[in-house]
Design a protein around this nucleic acid. Structure first.
Length: 310
DNA sequence: AAAGCGTGGAG
DNA sequence: TCTCCAAGCTT
């Protein structure tokens, strides 16, 4: 019985995605064991809930800004149940200036779901995790991997950039995860779950501190000799222009200003106080305020006063 | 599936 | 100064 041919699917070939795959993984992991930053969510005493909190906070926000908020958060809400027991507005307030306050709202909703659907225990499977509000492909893999040592590809912007350069020889990855990213990550994934989990952390760390977007420190890279991008002379990015996010004068900025007023005040705020927070465009202010209410971040108490939702 | 969603620091 | 971008998710 030719088992080899019967188990092979039509798009598989004998050509590996990357000749130096195992060396790449080994080199990055070895470097990680020596150089990893000591981050609180990586310590042995970090609970799955702590890992989950860190992952929510780290979605689009740098480590240094997350650290103090993370510590205060876990001190106040050491379990999902503790957070679920409080109004969403308290989560939004404690979120402070991390940005994208819907993440606080979704973390609260996720805590509630953990409490109600998973007996208060942060689920350990990829599928259950992905079912939680605010948990997508990346975060599900990250929590499964870091909190439970499961074997999953973990594709964040760091890992995608590392793979883009090392494997594909391209300076920047696509704006979002592609099937090609998944194929490469899957091919590189170590067989043993514990090894896969360590590789996930290590490849993220390399992207975060060495293989950075702006000024990669290739001289300090443990796998520069294996890197396709380096080997081909670091060709500059040659794709479609990547849209930069504007911020000044946007609805997002207006929402931010309005929410900051509510965050910094306990209880409710009179409408005039919100109006004073954004005077440059009345139409925009009203649209922003309405969207905050619509999103469930803000509550209208009577037509005159506003508060963080609960 | 492209666009919306905060904020602050680094180069 | 100004541009880029940082452990994405949702609709």
């Amino acid at each position: 019985m030719a088992e080899r041919t019967t188990t092979r699917t039509i798009d598989q070939t004998d050509t590996p995605v990357f000749e130096h795959g195992s060396e790449l993984v080994a080199g990055v992991v070895e470097w990680y064991r020596a150089e990893a930053r000591d981050l609180p969510w990586r310590r042995p005493d970090a609970t799955p809930w702590a890992v989950m909190v860190s992952e929510f906070m780290l979605q689009q926000t740098p480590v240094v800004r997350v650290l103090p908020v993370y510590e205060a958060w876990l001190e106040r809400w050491p379990t999902p149940a503790a957070l679920a027991a409080e109004p969403v507005g308290e989560a939004v307030r404690a979120w402070g200036r991390l940005g994208y306050p819907r993440r606080a709202q979704r973390l609260h909703a996720a805590a509630t779901a953990v409490e109600e659907e998973f007996d208060g225990v942060v689920p350990s499977t990829y599928e259950d995790l992905w079912s939680l509000p605010g948990v997508g492909e990346y975060t599900a893999g990250a929590i499964a991997s870091f909190a439970y040592q499961k074997r999953h590809i973990v594709l964040d912007t760091n890992v995608r950039r590392v793979l883009s350069r090392a494997v594909s020889g391209v300076e920047y990855p696509a704006p979002a995860t592609t099937p090609g990213d998944r194929r490469i990550a899957t091919a590189l994934l170590p067989e043993a779950a514990a090894d896969a989990a360590e590789w996930a952390a290590a490849s993220m760390e390399l992207g975060a501190v060495v293989c950075t977007a702006r000024a990669p420190r290739c001289d300090d890279c443990p796998v520069a000799e294996l890197c396709t991008w380096v080997a081909t002379g670091k060709p500059p990015y040659d794709g479609p222009p990547r849209r930069g996010q504007t911020y000044e004068g946007t609805d997002r900025q207006a929402r931010g200003r309005l929410l900051a007023v509510l965050r910094d005040t306990h209880g409710s705020v009179p409408r005039e106080e919100l109006e004073a927070a954004w005077t440059r465009d009345v139409v925009q202010r009203e649209r922003a305020l309405a969207s905050l209410v619509d999103d469930g971040l803000v509550m209208v108490l009577d037509g005159e006063r506003y508060a963080l939702a609960h």
